[in-house]
Simulated scan of single mutants.
Amino acid sequence: MKIVADTVKCVGAGQCVRTAPDLFDQGEDDGVVVVLNAEPEGSLLSVVDEAVDLCPAQALSVAG
């Protein structure tokens, strides 16, 4: 599983960071999503789908 973030679509709402702070952060200047761990394992996998679903801009997806 690999997390894919479309930084052009991202509106900086921060839902991903609130849902999975070990996987996501936001840029200091623009608030755009920063993926901290694109290929999570173990217990982190359970929150990936939730973060993808909660993204209001649909800027997050999962590949593989």
Rank of each mutant, 00 (worst) to 15 (best):
V4L: 13
V4H: 10
D6C: 07
V8D: 12
C10K: 03
G12L: 09
G12V: 11
A13P: 00
G14A: 12
Q15K: 11
C16N: 05
C16Y: 02
V17P: 00
T19E: 05
P21L: 09
P21S: 08
D22H: 09
L23H: 02
L23F: 02
F24K: 02
F24A: 02
Q26A: 12
G27F: 05
G27N: 13
E28T: 12
G31E: 05
V32C: 04
V32A: 07
V32L: 13
V33S: 01
V35Y: 14
V35K: 09
V35W: 13
V35I: 13
V35H: 12
L36M: 10
N37Y: 04
N37R: 15
N37D: 15
E39G: 06
E39M: 11
P40L: 08
P40F: 09
P40M: 07
E41Y: 10
L45W: 01
L45S: 11
L45V: 11
L45I: 10
V47W: 07
V47M: 12
V48M: 07
V48T: 05
V48N: 03
D49P: 07
D49H: 06
E50T: 13
A51Y: 01
A51K: 01
L54G: 01
C55R: 01
A57W: 02
Q58L: 13
Q58A: 15
Q58E: 15
L60N: 03
S61N: 04
A63W: 10
G64Y: 04
